[in-house]
């Protein structure tokens, strides 16, 4: 088996913020009735808890994000996907649900530095000043769908894999030194 490749091979751009493609990162989509008790149990079984509306809850190397009223996104190390999928699938037996490995359908970027938010402010129609702690925001970056959240002095942003080159281009364009929106 060959090593899994991220969409772009992890390029880095240094501007007024640092932009990096990271990954590959494991991702599982889970669609189910989020209030079902069996779901909380299933999540607990893989070390996760149910996030509130529009929140992402990180537990060590894994995280669960609220994507929609019946959809969670589970993030985890790429190699752990089969094991966690199997565990969740077993725990949810008998409950109407959908589980799928979507790791390779996505590209993941980090935008880092004190001005990281200014990069996103050029691309996303989102009031970043009002983004709440731990909020997972789904929106668009210029012409493509994205989801992002603030984490460790920066933002993590997810896009579809096929447009990873476009998103890296957007982030690079927006992080050019000298194009800061605000001084701080």
């Amino acid at each position: 088996m060959s090593e899994p490749q991220s969409a772009l091979g992890n390029p880095v751009f240094e501007g007024f913020a640092t932009v990096r493609e990271i990954g590959p990162i494991g991702m599982i989509t889970l669609r189910a009735t989020l209030s079902a008790p069996v779901l909380a149990k299933a999540l607990a079984g893989v070390g996760l808890a149910l996030p509130a509306q529009r929140r992402i809850l990180r537990q060590g190397a894994r995280a669960a994000g609220w994507m929609s009223s019946d959809e969670l996104l589970i993030l985890l190390p790429h190699s752990e996907v089969p094991e966690v999928l199997a565990s969740l699938s077993k725990a949810l037996q008998g409950e109407h649900h959908l589980l799928a490995d979507i790791s390779d359908a996505r590209a993941v970027f980090r935008i880092e530095g004190v001005k990281a938010g200014q990069v996103l402010a050029k691309l996303c129609p989102v009031d970043l000043d009002r983004l709440e702690p731990g909020e997972l925001r789904r929106s668009r970056a210029a012409q493509v769908a994205c989801a992002f959240w603030a984490e460790d002095d920066g933002f993590t942003l997810i896009s579809f894999r096929s447009v990873a080159g476009y998103v890296m281009g957007l982030l690079t364009h927006s992080a050019q030194t000298g194009s800061e929106l605000y001084s701080a």
Binding site: R54, S68, S69, P125, R137, R138, S139, R140
Partner: peptide
């Protein structure tokens, strides 16, 4: 009403 986001027309 599902996620509570006030979205602009381009997100809809």
């Amino acid at each position: 009403p599902c996620c509570g986001v006030t979205a602009e027309e381009t997100e809809l």
